[in-house]
Design a protein around this nucleic acid. Structure first.
Lengths: 129, 129
DNA sequence: CGTCACATTTACGTTAACGTAAGGTTCTAC
DNA sequence: GTAGAACCTTACGTTAACGTAAATGTGACG
């Protein structure tokens, strides 16, 4: 089952609709770090949560490098003060970006909706020859 | 001035913060089609509007190919009925995507905000050694 | 007339994010 | 014990979206 505590790579793939290559690639880029049972990768809750953030970030047009830095926010290992402070300002920048993106998205949505309305009206008149 | 009816490539570049290479690239991919005065490119309102849509689309993570298809919506040349109908369903798909993206973006924003709050609280306690 | 800024085309180079193929291990099933 | 499924590593290939370099053209200016 996909809600098992510990998942294999193929279970991950079907659960999140990604390829094994992608998962290994993310690992290589240090966005995730699954445990090993021998040579086999094992994914627990932490890695799954991270993967979701990765996939979401991608949908918003963030690069993997952007995402990698953000991911540290979601780990409690605040390490030292300086590190935490840096991560915080970085996260605030991202937040501002996302808020701006949201505002723009709203505009784009209403614009596109308008165009669609115009288009379908035009289609109407064209169809009644 | 940047609000002149007709703009050169370098005016476009500083106005929209893109490189000439990018503009020529978009033209090559048929996302824009500036007129020519001799060999020189001239950009009017239509191309500027298109460029804005291109840049916006990119910020939302759409590919240039995605954007190219969408752009046809914003041109009144509906050509024939079949073409217009196809473009319309395509636009509706995009609209659905963008609405979904907006919902997800809202969630991501509040989540990130929460993490930031937690992080800065933690930073507080760490700083008062 | 020369030269300078700005434009052009052509073409090879680069980066991110994987895809894909080759060859090898490990576990279970018969 | 061997066949198959699922996993692994290594490494070269691919696509999108430009960057960058080279060679050339063109208009205005002193």
């Amino acid at each position: 089952m996909s809600n098992a505590e510990i998942m294999t790579i193929s279970e991950m793939c079907s659960a999140y609709d990604v390829t094994p290559r992608a998962l290994r690639f993310y690992e290589d880029k240090e966005l995730i770090a699954p445990e090993r049972r021998g040579t086999q990768r094992l994914y627990r809750h932490r890695e799954r949560a991270r993967l979701q953030l990765i996939l979401r970030g991608k949908r918003f047009g963030f690069s993997l490098e952007d995402i990698r830095q953000l991911l540290d926010m979601y780990d409690r290992e605040g390490s030292n003060v300086a590190q935490l402070a840096r991560t915080l300002t970085l996260a605030q920048d991202r937040l501002a970006q996302m808020q701006a993106q949201r505002a723009e998205l709203d505009i784009a949505i209403t614009e596109l909706q308008t165009e669609i309305d115009l288009g379908s009206a035009r289609l109407q008149t064209l169809e009644e020859k």
